[in-house]
Amino acid sequence: MANLTLQNDVLLVEFPNEGSKLSFEENLYELVSYIHKKLNNYHLKIEVIVNEKTEIKKAFTIHDKLDYLKKINPVLENLIKTFDLEVKP
């Protein structure tokens, strides 16, 4: 997901990784052309940056691992409740 900020005539688009940035930049020319025409503002520029904040989180216990999996896939919580599953260390 990109963060957008507008500073004067520069729209700053911030992506979490280089892959997202490259994907966005593939269609940047068409987007800028469309925005210029639609807003009738030919001074607007788009600047694309990458802000990779790397956080290394390690799950050591079985409960930490389960919490991590629940965060990735929230449906897991419903599965555990539906089948009355419990985690044993």
Rank of each mutant, 00 (worst) to 15 (best):
L76R: 04
A59N: 12
L28S: 05
I80G: 01
K38F: 09
N27R: 08
I80P: 02
V13N: 03
K21E: 05
E86A: 06
L12W: 05
N78W: 05
T54H: 09
T61D: 09
T5M: 13
V32L: 10
K70I: 03
T54Q: 12
H36C: 02
T82M: 11
K88N: 07
D84E: 15
V87E: 02
P89C: 00
K21R: 08
S33K: 13
E30A: 10
K88D: 03
A59M: 12
Y42Q: 08
V75H: 10
H43F: 09
K45R: 15
L66E: 05
E18T: 03
H43T: 06
E52V: 11
E26K: 15
Y68V: 09
V50S: 04
D67Y: 05
D64G: 03
P16D: 04
Y29W: 01
K45F: 03
P16N: 02
D84Y: 01
T61W: 02
L31K: 13
L44Q: 02
K38Y: 12
H63V: 10
K21W: 01
S33L: 09
D64Y: 05
L85Y: 00
T5P: 00
P74T: 01
E26T: 07
L66S: 01
Q7E: 15
F83Y: 15
E26F: 06
N3P: 00
L39C: 06
V75C: 00
Y29F: 09
L39R: 11
N41H: 06
I35A: 05
T5I: 11
N8T: 10
V10Q: 15
K37T: 08
K37D: 13
V32N: 02
Y29I: 14
I49W: 00
S33E: 13
K65V: 07
K65S: 08
E86P: 00
K53N: 12
L6A: 09
L76A: 04
N8K: 15
E86N: 10
E52K: 09
T82D: 13
Y42M: 04
N3Y: 10
I80S: 02
V13I: 07
F60R: 11
I46E: 03
I72N: 08
N3V: 11
T82Q: 14
Q7N: 14
D9R: 12
V32K: 08
Y29T: 14
K71N: 12
K57E: 14
N73W: 08
L76E: 02
Y34W: 07
N17H: 08
F60S: 10
N73H: 10
F24S: 01
K65M: 13
H43Q: 14
I56T: 11
K53A: 08
N41G: 00
A59L: 09
H63W: 10
I56M: 11
D67T: 07
P16G: 01
Y29D: 15
L39W: 08
L39F: 04
S33Y: 08
D64N: 12
Y34L: 14
D9S: 12
